[in-house]
Lab assay of single mutants.
Amino acid sequence: QIFVKTLTGKTITLEVEPSDTIENVKAKIQDKEGIPPDQQRLIFAGKQLEDGRTLSDYNIQKESTLHLVL
């Protein structure tokens, strides 16, 4: 699982696999929060994550925290 922290300070927990794409993660966030993926920007280690890449591409491991910017 990974954590996604929103600007409001809320933390969302997501069940993911390293092979999941960023697009996939955004879809999971939409399921939980109702935020359309095209409004979501995910930041990890100061980098904006691209939809077509996977979590493992960015070396995002379990218990990692991503930041969600709208």
Rank of each mutant, 00 (worst) to 15 (best):
D51N: 11
A27E: 10
V69F: 13
L66T: 02
A27Y: 12
L66E: 01
F44T: 02
G52N: 12
T54D: 03
T54R: 09
D31S: 12
T21F: 09
Q61L: 12
E23Q: 10
G46K: 04
G9L: 04
L49Y: 01
K32V: 11
L7C: 15
T8P: 05
Q1F: 15
Y58Q: 04
D51G: 06
D31W: 10
I2S: 01
N59F: 07
D57T: 05
I29M: 03
I60A: 02
K26M: 06
V16F: 15
L68N: 01
L70Y: 11
Q40G: 03
Q1S: 11
Y58V: 02
Q30R: 11
G46C: 10
L14D: 01
V4P: 01
D57H: 12
S19L: 08
D20S: 07
G9H: 05
Q30P: 02
I22F: 03
V16R: 02
E33Y: 07
R53M: 12
K62F: 11
V16G: 03
G9R: 02
D20R: 02
K28M: 12
S56P: 03
F44M: 04
V16M: 08
Y58G: 01
D31K: 14
Q30E: 10
P18F: 15
I29W: 00
D31L: 14
L14P: 00
K28F: 06
E15D: 14
S19M: 11
H67I: 14
V16K: 01
T6L: 15
S56C: 08
K47I: 15
H67T: 14
R53N: 10
A27T: 10
L7Q: 15
K10I: 11
I12A: 02
A45N: 15
K26N: 01
A45C: 15
L14E: 00
P36Q: 07
A45I: 06
I2N: 01
Q1C: 12
V4F: 03
I29A: 02
P18S: 10
K47W: 08
G34T: 03
L49H: 00
L70P: 09
L7R: 09
L14A: 02
V25T: 03
G46Q: 05
G46A: 04
I29K: 00
Q48H: 12
L55E: 00
Q61M: 11
V25Q: 00
D57W: 12
T13R: 09
L7S: 15
S19A: 08
I22N: 01
E17A: 12
E50Y: 07
T54L: 09
Q61K: 10
T13S: 10
T11G: 03
G34V: 02
S19G: 10
E50D: 09
V4E: 01
L66N: 01
Y58D: 02
T6H: 06
D57R: 03
T65A: 04
S64Q: 08
I22Y: 01
I12T: 03
Q30A: 12
G52K: 11
E50K: 07
V69G: 06
R41I: 15
E23K: 11
K62G: 11
P36C: 08
I12G: 00
D20G: 03
R41A: 10
T13H: 07
V16L: 06
D38S: 12
V16C: 12
L70C: 13
L66S: 01
I2C: 03
A27P: 00
K47H: 11
I35A: 04
E23W: 14
K10S: 07
Q40T: 05
D57M: 06
F3A: 04
K62V: 09
S19V: 06
Q30D: 06
I22P: 02
A45D: 14
V16Q: 02
D57Y: 14
K28E: 03
L66A: 02
E63S: 10
I60E: 01
R53G: 06
Y58L: 05
T13C: 11
T13E: 07
P18H: 07
A27H: 14
K47P: 01
T6F: 15
D31N: 11
E15L: 12
K10V: 07
T6V: 11
T6M: 15
V4K: 00
F3M: 06
Q1R: 15
I43D: 05
Q61F: 11
K62I: 09
I29S: 01
Q39M: 12
F3H: 09
I43N: 06
Q39W: 09
E17K: 15
H67C: 13
L14H: 00
D20M: 10
P37G: 08
L42E: 00
R41W: 10
S64K: 04
N59T: 04
D38T: 12
I2D: 01
F44R: 02
T11A: 05
R41P: 01
F44H: 06
V25Y: 01
K47S: 09
D51L: 05
K5V: 14
F3P: 01
I29L: 08
S64I: 05
Q61Y: 11
S56A: 10
L55R: 01
P18Q: 11
N24P: 00
G9S: 04
L49I: 04
V16A: 07
K47M: 14
N59S: 09
L68I: 05
L42G: 00
K62N: 12
K47F: 12
L7T: 15
P37H: 10
I12F: 10
E17L: 14
G34A: 05
D57P: 00
L42D: 00
K5P: 01
Q1T: 14
S19I: 06
L66Y: 02
F44P: 00
Q1N: 09
S19Q: 10
G9V: 02
P18D: 09
E50F: 07
T65L: 10
T21V: 04
L49S: 00
S56V: 08
G52A: 12
K10M: 10
E63K: 08
T8M: 12
F3G: 02
N24H: 12
D20C: 08
I2F: 04
D31R: 11
R41S: 15
L49P: 01
K5G: 03
I43P: 00
L7N: 15
L42V: 04
K28D: 02
K62D: 11
K32M: 11
K28I: 06
Q40D: 02
K62A: 14
A45M: 15
